Simulated assay, not measured.
Amino acid sequence: MSSVNVGVVAIGDISEVYFDNVEKHPIVNVLRCTGSDPTRSIEKARRNRITRSHANANELLADADIDIVLNLIVPQAHDPLTSAALRAGKRVYTKKPLGITPRRRYCRGGESMQADATWDARLTPFRGGRSYTKTSSAKDGQV
């Protein structure tokens, strides 16, 4: 199995749980991180042997080395980040619930956005200590 490269958005206290546990999974490489405080992001990257701290989430989403975005951002900003990550062609791992309909729409707060034909998104919400995976491919018409 090949390894995956992760970029972490939001590096508050909960991020330490992820940084501590990623060591148990040798195929997962946390390469990048970003947070609201650039100085804290640099320090968090240094302490956790992360190769680079980005100045903001947009920079991280544009990083070609990132396969998966770990979305730990505050609930108010969660949906825009997930949408932007999917549009950037990234896979998303999140603690927040998501909704996927058979019409290939990513549902958020009563709104929906049509899935682009180039999406091949693997959305993995994390709830209650279990991971639930839903794979959707707009190209293949699968949900």
Rank of each mutant, 00 (worst) to 15 (best):
K95C: 15
Q76H: 08
A62H: 09
D67T: 06
N48A: 06
E59C: 02
A85I: 05
K95W: 14
L86R: 02
R52Q: 13
R103V: 11
A62K: 11
R46Q: 14
R52E: 10
A55G: 13
R91I: 11
G89D: 03
I42D: 10
H78M: 04
N48I: 00
K90C: 01
I68V: 13
I66P: 03
S53W: 00
E43S: 07
D65W: 05
I100G: 03
R49K: 14
E59Q: 14
I100L: 13
K95P: 13
K96A: 15
L81G: 03
N56T: 08
A45L: 03
T101S: 10
H54E: 08
L61N: 00
S53P: 08
R87D: 11
S83C: 13
L81V: 12
K90D: 01
Y93V: 14
N58A: 08
V74A: 12
E43G: 02
D79M: 08
S53L: 04
L86V: 14
A45G: 07
D79G: 11
T101F: 14
L60M: 05
A64Y: 09
G99W: 12
S83T: 14
R103F: 13
S83G: 12
R87I: 08
L70D: 00
D65E: 11
D63M: 02
E43C: 00
K95L: 15
R87T: 08
A57G: 02
E43H: 06
T51G: 06
R46F: 10
R103G: 12
N58T: 10
I66W: 03
N48V: 00
I100A: 09
P80C: 00
N71E: 09
D65I: 03
K95S: 13
A45S: 09
D63K: 02
T51V: 10
N58W: 09
G99C: 12
A62G: 11
L72T: 02
V74H: 15
K44G: 00
T82A: 07
H54A: 09
I73N: 04
D79I: 09
H54P: 04
Y93C: 10
R91K: 15
I50Y: 00
R91D: 15
V69D: 01
A57S: 11
V92R: 08
R104E: 14
R103P: 10
D63C: 03
A84S: 10
R47Y: 11
L70V: 00
Q76L: 11
